[in-house]
């Protein structure tokens, strides 16, 4: 799977979850610091990512720092889809 494809799908998921379309233009924006993600949203995101990419991500497999931005989430997905 190409990284650009993962970026597109992750971005679409996060825009859908947060209802903030401008986040698509800010792949390095801190989603927790900006208030777009919190504990619940992080769980929702993990469940959505598992469904989208057919992977299993245990709750403590990724640190919060690993999923702060769209780009860091994409890196984690690459890790789990290898």
């Amino acid at each position: 799977m190409q990284r650009s494809d993962i970026v597109d799908r992750v971005t679409a998921l996060i825009v859908d979850m947060t209802g903030e379309p401008q986040i698509a233009t800010e792949p390095n924006s801190d989603l927790f610091a900006s208030g777009l993600l919190d504990s619940l949203a992080a769980v929702e995101l993990l469940v959505a990512l598992e469904d989208e990419f057919s992977v299993e991500i245990p709750p403590t497999a990724v640190e919060r720092d690993d999923i702060r931005t769209i780009n860091s989430i994409v890196t984690q997905i690459e890790r789990f889809t290898v």
Partner: peptide, 10 residues
């Protein structure tokens, strides 16, 4: 958070 909240909500 990691072992109760996240697992329950997941």
């Amino acid at each position: 958070r990691d072992f109760v909240f996240m697992r329950f909500t997941r």
